[in-house]
Amino acid sequence: MKDKSMYIYGGIFAVLAVAPVFLNPYWVDVLNNVGLYAILGLSLNLIVGHAGLFNLGHAAFFAVGAYTAAILNTLYGIPVLWLLPVCALTAGLFAGIIARPIIHLRGDYLCIVTIGVGEILRIALINDLFGITGGPNGIFGISRPTVFGYVIRKPHEFYYLIGTFLMVTIFLFHRLENSRFGRAVNYVREDETAAEGSGINASHYKLAVFVLGAAWAGMAGDIFAAKMTIIAPESFNFWESVVMFAIVILGGSGSIPGVLLGAVLFVGLPEVFRDFADARMLIFGAAMVVMMIVRTEGILPQRPRTYALPEASNAGGNP
């Protein structure tokens, strides 16, 4: 089982590594968008999938990252890739400040608060907060990223940049999932009271996951700003949060392959449906309902943890 999936993943990786050679710039750019949303989906997956926190305002953290990059780059000329840690810091800090007083709220209340924060931030950006966000026009003229003096400009060049970032994300998040931290967070999601009883500080873990997911979205924002070279408040509206959320749930909440597949479907399908012109979103909506009904747990749900016991015959179930 393990070996088989390794072959499949290896095969996919190999196909994707050489894909830009065979694809035209449009499809490469679609894959870039898939990659970007996959990173965003994975970061939200920590919050929604692993910690079970109902976050429908993830675009806000994405926006904080993108605007941090855009402002520091256009005002001080700092190369965008150097700004990655700064974007992570500002987005994480922002998330920490807003999450601190609300993290204890019950599911749906947290949902509306995150929606509200997202909207407040968008309106603040439109109204040119502190005179540095450029109002509705946004910020333009963000410079392209450079790697060892090589300027990344074309879709297939971004493909490898985003691809690398995605690989690193998958690797780190995979390690995180199977760490002590990841298990504790899952425990809190499954049964907060029991987790508290086992000595896990639930709100501490929830807050940590929230900040971590937000910081990661901030870094994705940095890449997005560099790729678009122009960012405007409308790129971070409620709909973007909805897409990220749906990627996680539809793909399979808590599962990395699921979220990746969710990103492929959510970004890819509207493109495949382009030939339906103005009916494409209708078909997309119907597809969402059908997929959810057919696979209620998501397409590739999180597998229950299994542990091989030293001598017993049956493996353990869900923690």
């Binding site: 710039p25 449009y26 750019d29 679609v30 968008n33 879709p155 678009m228 122009i230 960012i231 405007a232 409308e234 790129s235 493109e271």
Partner: peptide, 10 residues
């Protein structure tokens, strides 16, 4: 939408 437009342009 800017992101959709970038894809449409590509």
């Amino acid at each position: 939408d800017a992101r959709t437009a970038a894809l449409a342009a590509q």
